[in-house]
Design a protein around this nucleic acid. Sequence first.
DNA 1: CCTTCATAGACTTTACCTATCTATAATATC
DNA 2: GATATTATAGATAGGTAAAGTCTATGAAGG
Lengths: 130, 130
Amino acid sequence: MKFTKATNYALHTMLTLVTASPAKPIGVQQLAESQGVSPTYLSKILTKLVKAEMIESISGAHGGYRLSQKKDDITFLDIIHAIEGTASLFECNFVHGDECSIQAVMTEAEGKMQSHLRNTKLADLVQKQP
Amino acid sequence: MKFTKATNYALHTMLTLVTASPAKPIGVQQLAESQGVSPTYLSKILTKLVKAEMIESISGAHGGYRLSQKKDDITFLDIIHAIEGTASLFECNFVHGDECSIQAVMTEAEGKMQSHLRNTKLADLVQKQP
DNA sequence: CCTTCATAGACTTTACCTATCTATAATATC
DNA sequence: GATATTATAGATAGGTAAAGTCTATGAAGG
């Protein structure tokens, strides 16, 4: 039970893109190098963010990635959901009568975490970056 | 990124033990059967709870498992930590200058979830059981 | 002593994460 | 238009942890 490395890559890449000028896209090569990950693997991750319509990709020379939303709209939860999916962290698959009281507690707990991630935007961190 | 099935087994078993009379231990066979899991596998899980000193095991005929704590002391977080470990859900292993602002957000979010799990006791569910 | 029951270790199987490689398509530059 | 640059997609392979089985061992009761 851990967040995947892919989520870490995605969050750091998004923070870079939010901080950077939106005019000029940044190539995956450069993004990958700064994180010590292979470009092909990172591009797989970024493709998910593209499909979630959080960033845009520009093919061809001088292409790369840039934000497609206003940076104030992008929350941690958006990014995490794009990478990890939106399934519940806990799923009791037993056949109880109707509802599982344990499931209810776990879902509520997860909701607390999600609430914090939904209320925190990437832009909140920008001024803290060097 | 999901809670393991083992956690689900552990939580349901603990709920059974909290609900049951503490005088007579319940065998793993019976506990396993009600959850549709093999006794040997479930006993592996329960051994972790024994080592966490949440339950006791009694060997020999008419043996089994029973609570070792007062049921009001047992929180969801205790059980989860006993099974999943206490490592942080998110660990940024990059070498930033000093601290990772992303890590800080993620840790705080996890803290919100943990807080809810720490404040919810198994005993809170007992009266809701049929 | 013999049955019952938990414990431990070795082992397999499965599933997913991580990563690489290659081919393809799109775009700018010359 | 040819070429270089760059993202996308598919196949594939390795690693790791979860999930589960099997067998042997040890403790306790009758």
